[in-house]
Nucleic acid binder design. Structure first.
Lengths: 244, 244
DNA sequence: CGAACGTTTGAGCATTTTCAAAGGTGGTGG
DNA sequence: CCACCACCTTTGAAAATGCTCAAACGTTCG
């Protein structure tokens, strides 16, 4: 037990690497600059200027791209314990926007702090890069889902993936989890219309697989849902390849 | 002029960073272990064992995931000058498979060589990481395309993106380029059926925008196609953010 | 109370898929 | 050298999946 309560990020990384006292301390220090963002207010990040990354500690965020015709595609969601804009900081590249879903709390991480932390604790750096690589794998899986799964399986897979991610930071289980997304968010993430999302959710509910209602996802039949979605969490699990 | 003819990778990186003699030399050395792979023969990389990355020097490769139900989603194509399996090497992670499209030539890059090169020439490392980040941006754009563009715009955008990538390594222009892909490859990449791919191609051809025939893409009306696809190459261009 | 937002449902329509079949091409072995 | 086979392209017709338009209902918030 460190003096500071375990942050979601700490929980997540600890699931894959045993972190030393020193590493935990550095990690805790990275959480120093607490900031709050209000629901819906876009967090800049479209253009170049503010080069900051964040560690999300509570609330959800989505990263998305708007197309010239006004439609939106959500690329990824960030849940507590996830980094936000890590690539922007490391490579001064920023191609999408971020929207807080509900009010959120995040720790601002300055480039200099991050680089310093990397130098002090290379193993921590490795763990963070690994987390980034996991995010990339999720984007790939998302691509596969949109390209090759029908609407029902897409939704089922998506809800399962979110469940796994949340379970890792202690705010979800095989029973279900709280989920602040609207059906519009789901539509923009899954490449479907909001109307169709509604029908898909009804279908899954009536099949006795999952229920999404009043901000809560309930797995009515977890293993049945896993079968239906052909959900294979291998891409989320990749255990310990970084322990060189 | 170095004694060695400029490789596609050198061409690509040079478009973004002015490389020194020393850096060019290191880059040339990375191209030492030439290997050939035959068309269609899968390049392993599904499981864990062989931890090698490649620099593609001629021919095309696609990286894909197969789903339990047998359908395939192509995540990305690699063209000359692209890295292959870079992430697998750095993070011992490998989630998709590679298929050479036609016979290919690639330089095998051992983890040790790569790390050594990174230590010797940090600027080169930065350039390579930047290229990796660009690949990631392409995957994101691919996701957006599948999620939010209809079949015609999707195809148009895809052909334009490939054109830009090839132009950068000197084997394509606004006139067109040679393209070894079959309509099945296009289908698996764009998340459409092969039959529909054929109809879409006909439609684009009859609109006088692009022609894809006999292994060649011809831009019949480049700017018209750009308009139609709403193609904005910003995500490919990100010039020089890495020159700290 | 009204406004804004999110959910739910119906009906008709559009895009894309599936199934089926035919034609072209290149390579290989007899 | 020809025949055959595998692979790719092309087309039609029917079916399915998901979309758009439209409208109603519920909730929250000021």
């Amino acid at each position: 037990m460190t003096p500071v309560a375990a942050s979601p990020l700490t929980l997540k990384l600890s699931a894959f690497v045993a972190l030393s006292e020193a590493e935990l301390a550095v990690l805790a220090r990275l959480h120093g600059r607490r900031r709050t963002f209000a629901a819906g207010r876009d967090m800049g990040h479209q253009g170049q200027p503010d080069q900051a990354a964040y560690i999300l500690s509570s609330g959800w965020v989505c990263s998305y791209k708007i197309q010239p015709d006004g439609t939106r595609q959500i690329v990824d969601f960030q849940v507590p314990g996830d980094f936000l804009g890590l690539r922007s900081v490391l490579l001064r590249t920023s191609d999408h926007s971020f929207e807080p879903i509900g009010d959120i709390q995040a720790a601002e991480v300055l480039t200099s702090d991050l680089l310093e932390a990397f130098v002090q604790t290379p193993r921590l750096a490795m763990a963070i890069l690994w987390a980034a690589s996991r995010d990339e794998a999720m984007v790939v899986e998302h691509l596969v889902g949109i390209g090759r799964r029908d609407a029902d399986a897409r939704m089922a897979h998506f809800l399962l993936e979110l469940g796994s991610r949340l379970a890792l930071v202690g705010i979800g289980s095989k029973e279900g989890y709280d989920c602040p997304l609207t059906q519009y968010h789901l539509a923009d993430a899954l490449g479907l219309s909001a109307v169709h999302i509604n029908r898909v959710l009804r279908q899954l509910r009536e099949s006795g697989l999952v229920t999404f209602r009043d901000g809560r996802v309930t797995f009515d039949n977890y293993s049945g849902l896993v079968d239906f979605a052909e959900f294979d969490p291998a891409y989320l699990d990749q255990t310990g390849p970084l322990l060189k």
